[in-house]
Design a protein around this nucleic acid. Sequence first.
DNA 1: ATACGATTTTTTTTT
DNA 2: AAAATCGTAT
Length: 668
Amino acid sequence: MSSIDYKKELNDEQYQVVTQADGPCLVLAGAGSGKTRTIVYRVAYLIEQGIKSDNILLLTFTNKAAREMLNRVALLLKGRNLKGLWGGTFHHIANKILRKFAPLIGYKANFTILDEEDSESLIKICLKELNINTKERRYPTPAVLKDLISYAKNSEKKLKEVVEIKHPRWLEILPQLEKIARNYEERKKQKGLMDFDDLLTNLLKLLKTQPPVKKVLSNKFHYILVDEYQDTNRIQAEIIKELASVHQNILVVGDDAQSIYSFRAADIGNILNFPKIFKDTKIFHLTTNYRSTPEILEVANRIIENNLKQFPKNLVSLQKSLVKPALAIMSNPETEAAFISETILELREQRVPLNKIAVLFRATYHSQPLEFELTKRDIPYDYRGGLRFFERAHNKDVLAFLKIVNNVKDEVSWFRLLNLQIGIGEVTSKNLISNLTKANNINSVLKQEVEQLLSERAKNGWRELKYIFLKILKAEKLLPGELIRKIIKSNYQNYLELNYPNYQERLDDLEQLSLFADRYQNLNSFLAEITMQENFSAARLRTDYQNENHEERVILSTIHQAKGLEWETVFVINLTEDALPNPRALKEEGGLEEERRLFYVAVTRAQKNLFLTYSLMSSFNSYYLKTPSPFLKEIPEELLEEIKTIEEDNFNDLNGDGISYLPEIDQL
DNA sequence: ATACGATTTTTTTTT
DNA sequence: AAAATCGTAT
C-alpha cells in the first residue's frame, strides 16, 4: 500500500527522477528547484518499492544535511524503520568502513582522526624532526604546508604541480617540501593517525587493493545517491565508482553554478564527465525555482550569467512577485550592524519569526560588529560559522587526554598536553614523545621511569601530567563523559583558572562537553564523531542545549555553511571589494568565478526579502573609503532598491556613542 | 640550548 | 582569539 501520492506532491521533472532513476543518473538541479525534496522522495520511493534500507547509501556534504534528509524520509514513511540506511558525509562513511577494515591496510582499528589543527601541529613536529630552520628566512607556515599537501592528495596531483599552481615562490625549496610531506605521511602511519584526507584515500585504497572488501560493499549498496556532486573531488568520485560497480544504480545531484569548494580540490569535471564514466547515463534537469520571488531570481540570474565557464541556465520562478531586493550602503560597520538589527526588529514586528531570517557573510570574522550589536539589543542569534576564534583550546586539551587513552601513540595529543606544562617546551616534548609512543597502552607509559631523562624544571610538569592520567584512569569503564568529568576535577582545573580570565565559562563548556559525551558508550566512536562534527564547539553545544525551549533565533552563517538552506529574509553583508571576492581567492585560477558563484549561492538562499549591505568605512581606518564589491556593479541598477543613509543617516549615532563619519583629525 | 613571556600579526571557505 | 615573533631568563 503506497501512502504517498508522488504524482501530486512532485512536479513532472522531479517525478521523473523519483520514479525513473535506475542505473547511472545525473540530475542537474538549479538553486531552489527542490533538489533535497527529490532525493528524499526518491529514497522513500525505493523503500516503498521494497528495497531494503540497508541496501541504500546516501552521501551528503554535511552531517546536518544527512540528518535532515533522513528525518524527512522517516516523516514521509511515517516512521517506517530506516535502520541500516547509511546516510552521511563521505568522511563519515569512510570512518565507519575503516573502523572495520583498517587492519587490512596497516592501521589499527583504534586510529585517531586528526582535525585541521592537529594536522598542522603534526607538521610542526615534522619540521622540528627534520631540523628545518623556519626562522632563517620566510618559510611557509604549517598551515600553508598542510594546504599544499592536502590539495595534492585530494586532486591526485604531484606536490610539485600544486606548488607551481598555488605558491610558485616555494618551488626553490621543493625538495624540502617533499621531504616534509613524506615525513608527515610516515608519522601518521606509525602513530595510527589519519587526517581528513586519509579517511578518503584509505577508503579508496581499501576498495582498490582488497577485492573481498570491495565485493562485500559493492554488493551491499544496491542504490547510491549523492547530493552536492559538484563539490566532490576526484577521490570521492572514484570511491563512488567502486561502490557502484556491481549494481550501477548511482544517482548524483548537483549544480555547477553552486560549486564553491574548489579550494578543497572539488572537481567540476566530476559532473561534466559523469556521462562518460558511466555508460548510458540518464540526464535530468530541474529548472523550476520554488524558493525565491522573481525579483530575487532575476538578480541571481544576472549575477551568474557573467561566468563564462558554466552550463547556461535561466531559472524560472514560481513565486509571485513581491519587492525588489534592497541595497543598503552604510557609513561604517557599526551603522551597518545597526541597520540590520533595526530591520530585523521591524520584521519581527511584522510577525516574521527570527529563525526565518539569516545574515550571511564571506568570512567568519566578518560577523563581529553585528554580534556586538545583536547582543546589545538582546536579539537572540545562532551562529553557524563555527566559533573558531575563541573557546577552542580547552576543549581540545581535554579531548587530547581521551585521545591518548584511546591511542597512546597519538603524538599530536602528547605534544599538546606536554607543552601545556610549565617547564616543558617543544624540544623536551619532542624528545619525550619518541619514548612515550613506543608503549602499547597508557598504563605502561605511566609505569615507565622517564623522569631521569628530564631536566629539573621539566620534571615537575611531567609529574603533574602523570598525576592527572593516574587519576582519570581510576575509572572502571572508560566512558567518555566520565573521563571528561574526571579531568575537569583534576588539576587541569587549576591550569584553566591560572591561564584564562573567563575560566568559569570554559569550565561550563567542558561540563556541556561531558554531557554530550554521555550519549556515547564507546570512547573510540565518541572521538571520531566529535572530530568530524562540523564546527564542533562547546559553545555551539551550549546553544543547542539552551535552545531546548525552541527559542527563535536569527541565523548568522558563512555563505559556505548556508549552502542548501533557505530563509524568508536574507542579509548578505560586507559586500566590499576586499571581502567578496576574497582577495586571496582571486589569486587562484578561476578564483573570480568561484567567488561569483559564492555570491550567487548567497543570493539564492532568500525566499522573499533580500538585503545586500556594505559600509564605506572600516571601523579602525576611516581614512580610506572602501570600494563596493565588483559583483554589485553587475546587477542592473533598476533591479535594486537603494537605501542610502550617508548624509541624513537615520542610524546616525543610534547608540549615543558619537559615531562620526568624518576621519579623525589626527589621522589626516 | 631551551623555555618563557611580552608584543605583534593575522583571520577564506570545511570534512 | 590564537599564532607567530623576538628578546630575555633559566
